[in-house]
Design a binder for these strands. Structure first.
Lengths: 131, 131
DNA sequence: CACAATTGTTTCCTTTTGGGCACTATAGCA
DNA sequence: TGCTATAGTGCCCAAAAGGAAACAATTGTG
């Protein structure tokens, strides 16, 4: 079935719009990462959702999947070239969103941002914490 | 209920992530526009969805709603100051998405982009066409 | 033999999102 | 009186997205 987007923005949203995709891309920004590491960093994600989101990003050619022939298994995910082109956009989106949250907080609204990105980096140290 | 975002990107996505919101913001980019005009430009939208998306954008303070005391009614929507801060971001997202679609097409995939944005403008002339 | 470690898959369910369609209100006009 | 134009509401249903929990496969180790 032919995919039809009305405007470019929609094509972009389809790629990064999943519930866990921005978070996953954040961690991927720090370099290749194993499944289990991701899972530990995203305590509330289920196996199903994790692999589903990863599979979608992979078939969208945003990330690559490298399987090591070992037991127990070892699989590493990494940003592809195309995935890396998302970085600046994600950084900009993060900035806009952070700015917005701060304004809303200043206006007394009940909003909170758990992780903040720093220095134009989307990444953050892989601190494990529930969120 | 307190809204919690894990990272800035998620706060951004909540604002622009509705099915019709990017399109609506496109048209709004050309200046104030009446409900009926929007509807004519979005042939497939239902009244319900249109007002719902507009209400959300309004309560997010992205757009303003101006009611003229007339019969039949006249209501005009326009970008707020905060809404205007979205423009560059939307333009960037549009560019990334358009670029991506072109690449996929070059790779022989079944993808199509109905409207293209031009010259760094998110806007397009309000051509009526179904999509 | 039983079990741990790792990366998944499968089935079933709940929640969220979007859509269909009938209905409302009001003033002018034929 | 009945019709038009405009901007909606309300109720119910369908589709999409997300989640819980059990199960699968493999090999080294106690």
């Amino acid at each position: 079935m032919k995919k039809i987007y009305r405007i470019g923005v929609e094509a972009t949203l389809e790629v990064i719009g999943g519930k866990w995709k921005p978070m996953i891309l954040c961690y991927l920004g720090n370099g290749p990462i194993r499944t289990g590491e991701l899972k530990r960093n995203l305590p509330k994600i289920t196996s199903k959702m994790l692999t589903q989101q990863l599979r979608e990003l992979e078939s969208d050619q945003i990330i690559s999947r490298k399987v090591y022939s070992q037991v127990p298994p070892k699989v590493e995910y990494a940003l592809t070239e195309e995935g890396r082109t998302l970085r600046q956009l994600l950084v900009d989106m993060a900035e806009w969103g952070e700015h917005r949250v701060h304004e809303r907080q200043a206006a007394g609204e009940e909003v909170e941002l758990v992780h903040e990105e720093h220095d134009g980096y989307l990444n953050f140290a892989p601190i494990t914490q529930d969120a």
